[in-house]
Amino acid sequence: MTEPLTRTYKLRSGRITPGQQRALDSFADRFAIPPGDVLLDLPALFQREAPVVLEIGFGMGGTTLEMARADPSTCIIAADVHVPGVGALLRGLHEQDLDNVRVLHGDGAELLARRIPPASLAGIRLYFPDPWPKARHVKRRLVDARFAALAASKLAPGGRLHCATDWAPYAAQMVEVLDAEPGLVLEYGGPVERPEWRPVTKYEARGRAKGHEVADIFAVRNG
């Protein structure tokens, strides 16, 4: 996959707090993944052999921190395009002394396409991506047939793609494209009780407050 991917996110303006800026200045050397196009050496990145999960879009990082703390044996690559969130996550990793997360300031889909080795990930997490609700914007949604094929190519056999959304039309699209991808087996797609290991995100709480039903969707890599 060499052509540029469609941008599937909106850049938000937001003020960086002094604490977030200090974290960017002080902790990037320890936790951040530098930009580039070279394939990542995952064991070298985390300095150990361990299952690695990619989280695409982590907001302000609270969910990432909670999952990393609860499961220190799993390593997480967390990618987001918004600088305040990157700073907040770096600060949280330092304060909680967590060493199983590496952070990329950038597009997680591009990272997946260009820097993750084939068949190397134990999981991909995509929680409450932008639903692009207007009909003219549907083509900007991340989870389409192309993304499904890309995810299948990067997951190790038995690796799991986990998506969550509170936008019913997007949930239906996710189920359709993941079910159609030969490299994936759709495990479950639809409204379901939230898995206890997935923390409630800010966007999930906001959607539920509006009466939206949340869908968790799982697909597993063949082989």
Rank of each mutant, 00 (worst) to 15 (best):
E181S: 14
A119E: 10
L142D: 00
R198D: 05
Q173K: 07
E204M: 00
K10H: 10
E204P: 02
K139E: 03
Q47D: 13
S153H: 03
D80R: 04
H94D: 14
G123Y: 02
E49T: 09
L112Y: 00
R194A: 12
T17Y: 14
E176W: 01
C75A: 05
C163R: 05
D216H: 14
D29E: 10
G159S: 03
P199L: 04
D216A: 13
V103D: 00
G57Q: 10
F27G: 05
R91W: 12
V138A: 15
N100C: 08
V200F: 14
R206D: 09
P169A: 11
L11Q: 13
M67R: 10
L24Y: 06
R115C: 06
E176D: 11
G19K: 12
E110P: 14
L184S: 03
G92V: 06
L161M: 05
D130G: 12
A50I: 01
L54C: 08
L121D: 01
I33C: 09
M174N: 00
V86R: 05
A145C: 09
M1Q: 11
H162M: 12
I217L: 08
R7P: 09
I33R: 01
F27W: 08
G190A: 11
L98T: 01
R91A: 10
A148F: 03
A164I: 15
R194Q: 13
L65S: 04
A44K: 10
L111E: 07
A209T: 13
T74M: 11
E213D: 11
P4F: 08
A68N: 02
A151Q: 01
H137D: 06
A152P: 04
R22S: 09
L111D: 05
P133S: 14
A70W: 07
A122F: 00
D97I: 13
F27R: 09
H212R: 12
D97H: 15
K134L: 14
T63L: 10
V53C: 06
V81C: 04
H137V: 05
S153D: 07
C75L: 06
V138D: 12
E187G: 15
F147H: 01
S73L: 11
G159Q: 00
L65N: 04
A135L: 15
I33L: 12
A44E: 15
V83L: 10
T201N: 01
E196Q: 11
L40T: 01
G108Q: 02
W167P: 04
A70M: 07
A145V: 08
P182T: 12
I56T: 03
P195A: 13
R7Y: 09
